[in-house]
Amino acid sequence: DRIFMTRTEALEFLLKAHQTAVDKIGHPSHKQTPADHAAIEALDRLLLDVRARRVDQFQINASAAQIIVTD
Results as ranks from 00 to 15, higher is better:
46 L>R: 00
22 V>H: 07
70 T>R: 12
17 A>H: 06
30 H>N: 10
15 L>D: 06
16 K>G: 07
68 I>N: 04
34 P>M: 10
36 D>E: 10
68 I>Y: 08
23 D>V: 08
28 P>V: 08
58 F>P: 00
41 E>W: 03
55 V>T: 07
48 L>C: 08
49 D>E: 13
9 E>N: 04
11 L>W: 04
66 Q>A: 10
34 P>F: 08
52 A>S: 11
69 V>C: 02
56 D>K: 12
50 V>F: 03
34 P>C: 05
54 R>I: 12
60 I>Y: 03
24 K>I: 10
42 A>D: 08
7 R>T: 08
23 D>S: 12
2 R>C: 14
47 L>W: 07
49 D>G: 11
19 Q>Y: 04
47 L>C: 04
44 D>C: 07
66 Q>G: 04
31 K>Q: 12
39 A>I: 14
39 A>G: 06
27 H>C: 06
2 R>D: 06
37 H>F: 14
20 T>F: 09
42 A>H: 14
57 Q>W: 09
47 L>Q: 03
2 R>W: 08
42 A>W: 13
42 A>S: 09
34 P>S: 10
21 A>D: 01
21 A>K: 04
45 R>K: 14
43 L>W: 03
17 A>G: 02
34 P>N: 10
48 L>K: 15
61 N>K: 07
32 Q>A: 14
22 V>G: 03
31 K>S: 13
6 T>S: 10
3 I>L: 09
34 P>E: 12
1 D>T: 01
64 A>T: 13
59 Q>S: 07
13 F>S: 02
22 V>Y: 04
36 D>V: 05
41 E>Y: 04
56 D>I: 14
43 L>D: 00
39 A>F: 15
6 T>Y: 02
53 R>V: 04
11 L>T: 03
32 Q>V: 14
22 V>K: 11
22 V>R: 10
62 A>Y: 06
68 I>S: 04
21 A>T: 07
43 L>Y: 03
3 I>H: 05
65 A>G: 06
24 K>Y: 06
66 Q>Y: 13
70 T>Q: 11
41 E>A: 14
43 L>H: 00
56 D>M: 10
39 A>Y: 15
13 F>E: 04
24 K>V: 09
47 L>Y: 09
46 L>V: 02
45 R>D: 04
4 F>I: 09
40 I>F: 04
5 M>K: 02
70 T>C: 11
52 A>D: 14
35 A>H: 08
34 P>R: 10
29 S>F: 06
27 H>Y: 09
27 H>P: 08
10 A>I: 02
2 R>M: 13
23 D>T: 10
55 V>R: 04
36 D>A: 09
11 L>A: 03
39 A>T: 12
67 I>A: 01
45 R>I: 07
4 F>G: 02
18 H>V: 13
29 S>G: 13
30 H>I: 08
32 Q>T: 14
68 I>K: 04
21 A>H: 07
8 T>S: 13
6 T>D: 04
64 A>E: 11
69 V>Q: 02
60 I>D: 04
10 A>V: 04
63 S>I: 11
63 S>T: 12
47 L>S: 03
46 L>H: 01
64 A>S: 14
31 K>Y: 06
62 A>K: 11
55 V>C: 05
37 H>P: 04
58 F>S: 00
25 I>R: 05
49 D>S: 03
13 F>Y: 15
21 A>M: 15
49 D>Q: 07
69 V>H: 01
